[in-house]
């Protein structure tokens, strides 16, 4: 379970996260949506302990992550898998080394076991025979799938997806969302998906949180969002502009 309470974050004089409270129950997948610059990715990075908020608290399975050192963070981070917006694949490592990296960092497995696990995942994301390639030899869609594989290889109970389909064509996006959905169906993982692709996300999240200007303006299930009479919520959901 992730419990975010009263989180504030300033950039200069601007309040970029403005008093966010949110509880994500065990085993649910939450879609975090909102206009660009609303603070979605930032909130996710605060949860992952990569960005320190100016005040507030984030509890991950009961452990406070705000203000603790990198050493104490170790045990929390090994529970979290993260898919980064910019792929964040290590460009000096092959596909195989990239995907196996979390397992190697955790330790306790032989090279043989790691290789088997990597090969199994590469088949699952439909990228056979790419083990020895480097990230710059892959297309955007392929890189996203490698990043996905790296995020899930250690079977983390918590998964953060930061804009998993940004810049991808509809078919490739569909493939990525199918992978996310498959993960969700296994059950047990608590996850946050930040995305602009509302059409693709509609069916794969248990609930949605709409952010704007650093605040949560709405949260609820798909049905609740669609039934909402607030103009901004409906507009955003359907992607209508008024200017």
């Amino acid at each position: 379970m992730i419990r975010i309470s009263e989180v504030y974050k300033y950039r200069g004089h601007e309040c970029v996260i403005n008093g966010v409270n949110l509880v994500i129950p065990q085993g649910t997948q939450v879609g975090l949506i909102g206009p660009g610059g609303a603070g979605k990715s930032l909130l996710m990075k605060i949860c992952a302990g990569l960005v320190r908020p100016d005040s507030g608290s984030v509890l991950i399975d009961g452990t406070e992550v705000v203000g603790i050192g990198d050493v104490e963070m170790t045990s929390v981070r090994s529970k979290i898998g993260m898919l980064f917006q910019n792929y964040a694949l290590f460009d000096f490592m092959t596909v195989e080394e990239n995907i196996g990296f979390p397992l190697r960092q955790l330790g306790g497995r032989t090279e043989e076991e790691i290789r088997d696990e990597v090969n199994r995942l590469l088949l699952a994301v439909d990228l056979p025979n790419t083990q020895k390639l480097f990230p710059n030899e892959l297309s955007g869609g392929m890189k996203k799938r490698v990043t996905f594989a790296r995020a899930v290889i250690a079977n983390p109970p918590i998964l953060f997806y930061d804009d998993p389909t940004a810049g991808l064509d509809p078919v490739t996006s569909g493939k990525i969302f199918a992978l996310l959905e498959e993960r969700r169906e296994r059950g047990g993982t608590t996850s946050i998906v930040v995305s602009h692709d509302i059409l693709g996300m509609r069916d794969i999240c248990d609930s949605f949180v709409l952010m704007d200007h650093g605040r949560i303006v709405f949260s609820g299930t798909r049905e609740e969002i669609e039934a909402s009479t607030r103009p901004f919520v409906g507009q955003f959901w359907r992607g209508e502009a008024d200017d």
């Binding site: 949506i33 909102g34 206009p35 660009g36 804009d163 940004a166 810049g167 602009h196 509302i198 507009q235 955003f236 359907r238 992607g239 209508e240 502009a241 200017d243």
Partner: peptide
């Protein structure tokens, strides 16, 4: 070149119009 890629739906709509 991909004018609406990576931006939110409302912004995309503004650009489209």
């Amino acid at each position: 070149d991909e004018p609406t890629t990576g931006i939110d739906p409302i912004s995309a709509n503004i650009v489209d119009r």
